[in-house]
Design a protein around this nucleic acid. Sequence first.
DNA 1: CGATTATATGGATCGCTGTTCCGCTTCTCA
DNA 2: TGAGAAGCGGAACAGCGATCCATATAATCG
Lengths: 221, 221
Amino acid sequence: MGRERIEPGGQSATVGRLEAAGGPDAPARPLRADAQRNVDALLAAAKAVFATSGVNAPVREIAANAGVGVGTVYRHFPRRSDLVTAVFRREVDACADEAPVLAAEYEPSEALERWLYRYADFIATKRGLAAALHSGDPAFDALPAYFEKRFRPALGSLIESAAAAGAIRGDLDAMDLLQAVANLCLHTAGERPDHTRRMIALLIDGLRYRASAPQHARGNW
Amino acid sequence: MGRERIEPGGQSATVGRLEAAGGPDAPARPLRADAQRNVDALLAAAKAVFATSGVNAPVREIAANAGVGVGTVYRHFPRRSDLVTAVFRREVDACADEAPVLAAEYEPSEALERWLYRYADFIATKRGLAAALHSGDPAFDALPAYFEKRFRPALGSLIESAAAAGAIRGDLDAMDLLQAVANLCLHTAGERPDHTRRMIALLIDGLRYRASAPQHARGNW
DNA sequence: CGATTATATGGATCGCTGTTCCGCTTCTCA
DNA sequence: TGAGAAGCGGAACAGCGATCCATATAATCG
């Protein structure tokens, strides 16, 4: 009992190569097959455990959920914080990668709206981590930069398309909007869950209010 | 070596009475003299250790600096977080209590300015604690309320006096200003230390810009 | 295919933490 | 001054992150 191994969810994340100390582009051997399986299982288990028990959950608990020993955890993630940041980057990637998918599937305005809700869900599950980010622990210093590196272009292209289509105003900075939505999510912690959703809807309506005609319209003219 | 007891600094904080479980105004016996000394020494040591080693410093280190055993720490502060919050409240009190002193010593506008710098110093030393505050740990839930309870009236009366004297605009909310200064302090972490000071000066100049004539002037007329 | 070797594993173990417990000391007050 | 209450110190406990190494296993080669 209490040993049901959490299997890696979907794509295998190809952590296959690690940078050797010899240089940024040293050949670096691929992971052994079982090791790769364990890395995937660990990331999946960590994500699940962090979601239920918070980011301070003990390493032993994550190891048990992944069906491995703690030694295996520390082989792949030398510090506890490395596991935390790896999960964080994975989820940032997953969220950012949805932007082009939505852009291909919906018209610009709706794609933007849907992605913002997706982003809000992402933020909602990161309360404990946000505190860790600002705790001054140098282990998390690189995360804000990664956050911006992935999210600014992802949201930026959605904004650009919507603005070009004349659906929203054109003078909008991606990081400003990301910050605004994040604040909405964090400040409405205990409220009814749909409150955040309505606040975001309000924000989006605000973006649409001063929409101009298409500024860079091209093509069918 | 390494055992120089940190003596309590100044006033003895009169923690002399503890609320008994019987009710909010049960008589509750006073602390024994040596116990009161130890409480003061612990608060002084904790303040010093938190300042140098951060709020995550081990309890044993604080106990050693206070020249007491860990048992004594836990007798007066059943949980580690109780010690943290006690130090925090003490420092909030010290900062808030300076407002009427400055108000008596300087003209309204300068008293306000001087207190804001004092408040900025307070915030600057609270980086680690701010993270703890937003970590979701229920042990710190009551602190924001205490923060507002003490600081809003303290700054509020300074603002009121300065506005009545026509030195600053009159439509200023104390909490807004506290928040603004705190943000200035936290966002300029690694900058040159006088940067924060200049930003606050700018903020104060902004307050003065739209100053009106005295609104409630009374007396020598 | 079997042997060989680099690689990966797991859990006992270490050092450090917050917290508890209790024999002993110290203060208080009649 | 002499009980007796109040307080004290530090050994001990449980849980944590992190380390280590004898063992097990995947990859490689003859």
